[in-house]
């Protein structure tokens, strides 16, 4: 296996990479705001709302993403609802991302020390101002690194969309493998494609984390 051929494989996988990135971005753009909503609603005074959100989050976190994917793609047809590969993937990934992100957000809100709340109360700030000026800015600084880390993990998980015939990296790699019968180099190329995004991205997140914890 010479280098040029191998690099050729990498290039053939790039369109799949683009699809993977698209899926990641869409799912997070939908999932993260949803998670913020879930995080807030979980403390709602209306019990049914709390329960529904709890179920949504626990199922989204408790089931393997693969099963969620299959549920939308293979399961819904039982109810005569047929979704495209992309639609199924978006539903499944958004649900999963939102479920994990909800925990991150709630945890970050809890981490803002009680002393901060007390001080804010003591100087007379009302609940909304407290949240907006004291709790949220600090919680955001705490939540951003893990949320970025989750984004990177979600990107890696797009590889699962392979099973529902969404033409991302793994799908392309598999077809390339069947064409060339060179599975080993082809999958190594796929690994390289993922690593080429994940490793710089992780380094960036570490850098951001360092900058964010400067003042606090």
């Amino acid at each position: 296996m010479d280098l040029t051929t191998w690099l050729g494989y990498v290039v053939e996988l790039l369109p799949g990479l683009w699809k993977a990135i698209q899926l990641t971005v869409i799912s997070l753009a939908l999932g993260y705001p949803l998670a913020l909503l879930f995080a807030v609603l979980m403390d709602s005074k209306i019990a049914p709302i709390r329960w529904i959100i709890l179920v949504l989050v626990e199922v989204g976190r408790g089931l393997p993403l693969l099963v969620l994917l299959y549920l939308f793609y293979q399961g819904l047809p039982q109810l005569s609802i047929v979704l495209s590969a992309l639609a199924s993937a978006v539903w499944a990934f958004t649900w999963s991302a939102a479920a994990y992100a909800t925990e991150i957000i709630r945890s970050s809100l809890r981490s803002v020390g009680g002393g901060q709340r007390e001080a804010a109360n003591a100087i007379g700030l009302d609940d909304r101002d407290q949240f907006r000026f004291v709790i949220l800015p600090q919680a955001a600084r705490i939540a951003i690194p893990p949320l970025l880390g989750l984004a990177i993990i979600m990107f890696q998980l797009t590889s699962l969309a392979y099973v529902i015939a969404y033409s991302e990296v793994m799908q392309s790699a598999y077809f390339l493998g069947t064409k060339t019968f060179n599975y080993f180099p082809v999958f190594l190329a796929a690994a390289a494609v993922y690593a080429s995004v994940t490793i710089p991205a992780s380094a960036l997140v570490t850098g951001i984390e360092r900058r964010l914890s400067r003042h606090v």
């Binding site: 002393g115 007390e118 001080a119």
Partner: peptide
């Protein structure tokens, strides 16, 4: 009524 705490509780991000 103003209050001063043992652990200061200043807002670190401001």
């Amino acid at each position: 009524v103003g209050m001063v705490f043992q652990s200061f509780n200043l807002f670190p991000h401001l």
